[in-house]
Amino acid sequence: METISIQWSLVLFTALTGIAGWTFVCVAADEFLGRAKAAAFPAGIAAFVLAVVGGLASVTHLSHPDRIMGALGHPTSGIFTEAVLVGLLCVFVAVYLVMLKRGASDGARKVVAVIGAVFGVLISFMAGESYMMSSRPAWDTLLLPLGYMLTAMPGGVACYLVVVAAKAKDAQVGEYAKALLVAGVLAAIGAVAFAAAAGQADGAALGCVVAAAVLAGVVPAVCGALLPKKPQQLMALAAGSLACAAVGIVCYRCLMWMVSEPVANLFLNIL
Protein backbone atom coordinates (compact mmCIF):
# COMPACT_ATOMS: atom_id res chain seq x y z
CA MET A 1 0.00 0.00 0.00
CA GLU A 2 1.36 3.39 -0.99
CA THR A 3 1.14 5.87 1.85
CA ILE A 4 1.43 9.58 2.37
CA SER A 5 4.85 10.72 3.54
CA ILE A 6 5.05 11.30 7.27
CA GLN A 7 4.93 15.02 8.04
CA TRP A 8 7.51 15.14 10.82
CA SER A 9 6.92 18.78 11.69
CA LEU A 10 3.28 17.98 12.44
CA VAL A 11 4.21 14.83 14.35
CA LEU A 12 6.52 16.84 16.62
CA PHE A 13 4.00 19.65 16.97
CA THR A 14 1.20 17.40 18.17
CA ALA A 15 3.50 15.28 20.35
CA LEU A 16 5.16 18.20 22.17
CA THR A 17 2.04 20.31 22.63
CA GLY A 18 0.14 17.23 23.86
CA ILE A 19 2.77 16.49 26.48
CA ALA A 20 2.86 20.18 27.43
CA GLY A 21 -0.90 20.33 27.87
CA TRP A 22 -1.08 17.30 30.14
CA THR A 23 1.96 18.41 32.13
CA PHE A 24 0.09 21.57 32.98
CA VAL A 25 -3.03 19.56 33.80
CA CYS A 26 -0.95 17.96 36.58
CA VAL A 27 0.22 21.39 37.72
CA ALA A 28 -3.40 22.51 37.92
CA ALA A 29 -4.40 19.34 39.76
CA ASP A 30 -1.73 19.95 42.38
CA GLU A 31 -3.16 23.38 43.06
CA PHE A 32 -5.97 21.41 44.71
CA LEU A 33 -4.03 18.37 45.96
CA GLY A 34 -1.03 20.27 47.31
CA ARG A 35 1.30 17.28 47.07
CA ALA A 36 4.27 18.89 45.31
CA LYS A 37 4.09 22.66 45.59
CA ALA A 38 7.81 23.04 44.97
CA ALA A 39 7.34 21.52 41.52
CA ALA A 40 4.68 23.97 40.37
CA PHE A 41 6.98 26.63 38.92
CA PRO A 42 9.53 24.36 37.17
CA ALA A 43 6.74 22.12 35.84
CA GLY A 44 4.97 25.21 34.50
CA ILE A 45 8.20 26.27 32.81
CA ALA A 46 8.53 22.80 31.27
CA ALA A 47 4.97 22.95 29.93
CA PHE A 48 5.53 26.43 28.51
CA VAL A 49 8.79 25.48 26.77
CA LEU A 50 7.32 22.29 25.29
CA ALA A 51 4.31 24.19 23.97
CA VAL A 52 6.47 26.90 22.39
CA VAL A 53 8.88 24.43 20.79
CA GLY A 54 5.93 22.41 19.52
CA GLY A 55 4.35 25.52 18.04
CA LEU A 56 7.59 26.44 16.27
CA ALA A 57 7.80 22.90 14.87
CA SER A 58 4.40 23.34 13.24
CA VAL A 59 5.53 26.55 11.53
CA THR A 60 8.43 24.72 9.86
CA HIS A 61 5.87 22.58 8.06
CA LEU A 62 4.76 25.54 5.97
CA SER A 63 6.58 25.86 2.65
CA HIS A 64 6.65 29.62 3.30
CA PRO A 65 6.82 30.18 7.10
CA ASP A 66 6.87 33.91 6.49
CA ARG A 67 3.23 33.66 5.39
CA ILE A 68 2.02 32.27 8.67
CA MET A 69 -0.25 35.27 9.26
CA GLY A 70 -1.99 34.49 5.99
CA ALA A 71 -2.56 30.91 7.12
CA LEU A 72 -4.03 32.23 10.37
CA GLY A 73 -6.43 34.46 8.47
CA HIS A 74 -8.97 31.65 8.08
CA PRO A 75 -10.75 31.12 11.44
CA THR A 76 -12.38 27.88 10.29
CA SER A 77 -9.10 26.15 9.45
CA GLY A 78 -7.36 23.58 11.62
CA ILE A 79 -4.19 25.69 11.59
CA PHE A 80 -6.09 28.61 13.11
CA THR A 81 -7.71 26.47 15.82
CA GLU A 82 -4.43 24.82 16.79
CA ALA A 83 -2.56 28.13 16.86
CA VAL A 84 -5.20 29.76 19.05
CA LEU A 85 -5.23 26.87 21.50
CA VAL A 86 -1.44 26.74 21.77
CA GLY A 87 -1.34 30.50 22.18
CA LEU A 88 -3.99 30.47 24.92
CA LEU A 89 -2.24 27.60 26.70
CA CYS A 90 1.03 29.56 26.69
CA VAL A 91 -0.69 32.74 27.87
CA PHE A 92 -2.38 31.07 30.84
CA VAL A 93 0.75 29.13 31.78
CA ALA A 94 2.73 32.39 31.68
CA VAL A 95 0.13 34.20 33.77
CA TYR A 96 0.14 31.35 36.27
CA LEU A 97 3.94 31.50 36.57
CA VAL A 98 3.84 35.24 37.19
CA MET A 99 1.15 34.75 39.83
CA LEU A 100 3.30 32.15 41.56
CA LYS A 101 6.26 34.51 41.67
CA ARG A 102 4.15 37.39 42.96
CA GLY A 103 2.39 35.31 45.60
CA ALA A 104 -1.13 35.67 44.21
CA SER A 105 -4.02 34.25 46.20
CA ASP A 106 -4.72 30.52 46.07
CA GLY A 107 -8.16 31.10 44.58
CA ALA A 108 -6.88 33.24 41.72
CA ARG A 109 -4.11 30.76 40.95
CA LYS A 110 -6.56 27.89 40.88
CA VAL A 111 -8.82 29.66 38.40
CA VAL A 112 -5.97 30.47 36.04
CA ALA A 113 -4.48 26.98 36.36
CA VAL A 114 -7.80 25.28 35.61
CA ILE A 115 -8.43 27.41 32.54
CA GLY A 116 -4.92 26.70 31.29
CA ALA A 117 -5.45 22.98 31.92
CA VAL A 118 -8.65 23.04 29.85
CA PHE A 119 -6.72 24.50 26.92
CA GLY A 120 -4.03 21.87 27.48
CA VAL A 121 -6.58 19.07 27.16
CA LEU A 122 -8.22 20.74 24.16
CA ILE A 123 -4.99 21.10 22.17
CA SER A 124 -4.15 17.43 22.73
CA PHE A 125 -7.53 16.50 21.22
CA MET A 126 -8.00 19.18 18.56
CA ALA A 127 -4.53 18.59 17.11
CA GLY A 128 -5.91 15.24 15.97
CA GLU A 129 -9.44 16.41 15.19
CA SER A 130 -8.05 18.71 12.49
CA TYR A 131 -7.21 15.66 10.37
CA MET A 132 -10.72 14.23 10.31
CA MET A 133 -11.95 14.43 6.71
CA SER A 134 -14.25 12.40 4.50
CA SER A 135 -11.59 12.14 1.79
CA ARG A 136 -9.50 10.06 4.19
CA PRO A 137 -11.81 7.30 5.50
CA ALA A 138 -9.14 5.93 7.86
CA TRP A 139 -8.87 9.35 9.48
CA ASP A 140 -12.57 10.19 9.55
CA THR A 141 -13.29 8.84 13.02
CA LEU A 142 -13.32 10.38 16.48
CA LEU A 143 -11.02 7.57 17.54
CA LEU A 144 -8.17 9.44 15.79
CA PRO A 145 -8.22 12.61 17.95
CA LEU A 146 -9.20 10.56 20.97
CA GLY A 147 -6.03 8.52 20.45
CA TYR A 148 -4.05 11.76 20.13
CA MET A 149 -5.35 12.90 23.50
CA LEU A 150 -5.05 9.56 25.29
CA THR A 151 -1.49 8.86 24.13
CA ALA A 152 -0.42 12.33 25.26
CA MET A 153 -1.73 11.78 28.79
CA PRO A 154 0.99 9.44 30.15
CA GLY A 155 3.67 11.63 28.58
CA GLY A 156 2.38 14.67 30.44
CA VAL A 157 1.99 12.86 33.76
CA ALA A 158 5.46 11.35 33.44
CA CYS A 159 6.97 14.74 32.54
CA TYR A 160 5.40 16.24 35.66
CA LEU A 161 6.72 13.41 37.81
CA VAL A 162 10.24 13.92 36.46
CA VAL A 163 10.05 17.53 37.64
CA VAL A 164 8.65 16.43 40.99
CA ALA A 165 11.48 13.94 41.41
CA ALA A 166 14.02 16.67 40.71
CA LYS A 167 12.48 19.58 42.64
CA ALA A 168 10.11 18.14 45.25
CA LYS A 169 11.76 14.93 46.40
CA ASP A 170 9.65 14.58 49.54
CA ALA A 171 6.36 14.92 47.68
CA GLN A 172 3.58 12.38 48.12
CA VAL A 173 2.89 11.18 44.59
CA GLY A 174 0.34 8.42 45.20
CA GLU A 175 -2.37 10.18 43.20
CA TYR A 176 -0.02 10.83 40.30
CA ALA A 177 1.13 7.21 40.31
CA LYS A 178 -2.51 6.19 39.89
CA ALA A 179 -2.92 8.83 37.18
CA LEU A 180 0.08 7.41 35.31
CA LEU A 181 -1.35 3.90 35.58
CA VAL A 182 -4.77 4.94 34.31
CA ALA A 183 -3.29 7.15 31.59
CA GLY A 184 -1.14 4.29 30.37
CA VAL A 185 -4.09 1.92 30.15
CA LEU A 186 -6.16 4.50 28.29
CA ALA A 187 -3.29 5.26 25.91
CA ALA A 188 -2.93 1.60 24.99
CA ILE A 189 -6.67 1.29 24.40
CA GLY A 190 -6.73 4.49 22.33
CA ALA A 191 -3.89 3.38 20.07
CA VAL A 192 -5.31 -0.08 19.46
CA ALA A 193 -8.85 1.24 18.95
CA PHE A 194 -7.80 3.63 16.18
CA ALA A 195 -5.67 0.97 14.50
CA ALA A 196 -8.60 -1.43 14.55
CA ALA A 197 -10.93 1.21 13.11
CA ALA A 198 -8.43 2.06 10.36
CA GLY A 199 -8.23 -1.63 9.48
CA GLN A 200 -4.97 -1.32 7.56
CA ALA A 201 -2.35 -1.88 10.25
CA ASP A 202 0.17 -4.26 8.68
CA GLY A 203 3.93 -4.20 8.18
CA ALA A 204 5.47 -0.98 9.47
CA ALA A 205 2.05 0.29 10.52
CA LEU A 206 1.57 -2.74 12.74
CA GLY A 207 4.95 -2.02 14.31
CA CYS A 208 3.80 1.52 15.10
CA VAL A 209 0.60 0.23 16.68
CA VAL A 210 2.51 -2.16 18.94
CA ALA A 211 5.11 0.49 19.80
CA ALA A 212 2.45 3.07 20.61
CA ALA A 213 0.44 0.68 22.77
CA VAL A 214 3.45 -0.70 24.63
CA LEU A 215 5.65 2.39 24.97
CA ALA A 216 2.95 5.03 25.52
CA GLY A 217 0.61 2.65 27.32
CA VAL A 218 1.92 -0.50 28.95
CA VAL A 219 5.27 0.85 30.17
CA PRO A 220 3.85 3.98 31.89
CA ALA A 221 1.04 1.87 33.37
CA VAL A 222 3.52 -0.61 34.84
CA CYS A 223 5.68 2.23 36.18
CA GLY A 224 2.61 3.82 37.72
CA ALA A 225 1.78 0.53 39.43
CA LEU A 226 5.33 0.19 40.75
CA LEU A 227 5.68 3.73 42.10
CA PRO A 228 3.74 3.24 45.38
CA LYS A 229 5.91 0.21 46.16
CA LYS A 230 9.19 1.84 45.14
CA PRO A 231 8.88 5.58 45.87
CA GLN A 232 12.66 5.85 46.17
CA GLN A 233 12.89 5.08 42.45
CA LEU A 234 10.61 7.94 41.44
CA MET A 235 13.12 9.58 39.09
CA ALA A 236 14.05 6.34 37.34
CA LEU A 237 10.44 5.25 36.88
CA ALA A 238 9.25 8.70 35.84
CA ALA A 239 12.13 9.28 33.42
CA GLY A 240 11.71 5.83 31.94
CA SER A 241 8.00 6.42 31.49
CA LEU A 242 8.60 9.78 29.85
CA ALA A 243 11.21 8.45 27.43
CA CYS A 244 9.07 5.48 26.41
CA ALA A 245 5.88 7.53 26.25
CA ALA A 246 7.54 10.12 24.01
CA VAL A 247 8.53 7.43 21.51
CA GLY A 248 5.09 5.81 21.72
CA ILE A 249 3.37 9.15 21.18
CA VAL A 250 5.42 9.75 18.04
CA CYS A 251 4.69 6.21 16.80
CA TYR A 252 0.94 6.76 17.15
CA ARG A 253 1.14 9.95 15.13
CA CYS A 254 3.25 8.24 12.46
CA LEU A 255 0.64 5.49 12.29
CA MET A 256 -1.92 7.99 11.06
CA TRP A 257 0.14 8.72 7.96
CA MET A 258 0.80 5.05 7.31
CA VAL A 259 -2.81 3.96 7.13
CA SER A 260 -4.01 6.50 4.57
CA GLU A 261 -3.73 5.98 0.83
CA PRO A 262 -3.01 9.21 -1.04
CA VAL A 263 -5.79 10.59 -3.23
CA ALA A 264 -4.50 14.12 -3.56
CA ASN A 265 -1.70 16.17 -2.06
CA LEU A 266 -3.08 17.34 1.28
CA PHE A 267 -0.41 19.96 1.75
CA LEU A 268 0.04 21.90 -1.46
CA ASN A 269 2.86 24.44 -1.41
CA ILE A 270 0.55 27.41 -1.38
CA LEU A 271 1.56 28.97 1.95
Rank of each mutant, 00 (worst) to 15 (best):
L10G: 05
M99I: 05
I45A: 11
A158Q: 00
R136M: 15
G217P: 04
A191H: 10
V95M: 13
V84N: 07
G34W: 08
Q200M: 14
A104C: 06
V182F: 11
G120K: 12
G78L: 06
K230D: 00
V84T: 10
L50E: 01
V263R: 04
I6N: 06
H61T: 02
R253M: 06
L206C: 02
A39F: 05
P262Y: 06
A40L: 15
C223V: 00
A212H: 14
C254A: 14
Y160D: 05
N269S: 12
S105T: 14
P75T: 14
D66W: 15
Q233A: 10
F194K: 05
C90S: 15
L88V: 13
P154V: 00
K169Q: 13
F32E: 03
P220H: 03
A179Q: 07
A205N: 13
V164P: 08
V86W: 04
L186F: 15
G78C: 11
A152P: 02
A195V: 12
A57I: 04
L255R: 01
A127C: 13
A212I: 14
F13Q: 05
A177E: 04
A213Y: 12
S58Y: 04
L143E: 10
W139H: 12
A104G: 01
I249E: 14
F48P: 02
T23D: 04
L88C: 13
P65Q: 09
L142D: 06
D140M: 09
A243Q: 01
A168G: 08
A187F: 13
V59R: 07
D66H: 12
L242H: 01
I45V: 15
M149G: 00
V185K: 10
V27Y: 02
W139L: 10
S135H: 11
M258I: 03
A204S: 13
W257L: 05
L33F: 13
A47N: 04
S58V: 13
V93K: 03
S124I: 04
A40D: 09
I19E: 02
T141L: 07
L100S: 05
P42W: 01
C223S: 06
G156D: 05
T60D: 07
W8Q: 07
P42H: 01
Y176H: 05
L146A: 14
K229W: 08
P137I: 03
F41V: 11
H61W: 08
S260C: 10
V164S: 01
A47S: 15
E2G: 05
A238Q: 09
T14F: 03
A198W: 03
W257S: 08
V222W: 10
E129H: 14
G21N: 07
L181T: 15
W257V: 02
S134N: 09
F13P: 00
A183T: 07
Y252R: 10
F92Y: 15
G184L: 02
A127N: 13
A36L: 14
A212R: 13
M258C: 00
A117G: 09
A127R: 08
D30V: 05
R109D: 12
A40T: 14
A29E: 04
A46Y: 03
L146K: 00
T81F: 14
I19N: 08
E82A: 15
G78I: 08
G103H: 07
A83G: 12
G107R: 15
I270F: 11
G78R: 05
F13S: 05
A236S: 09
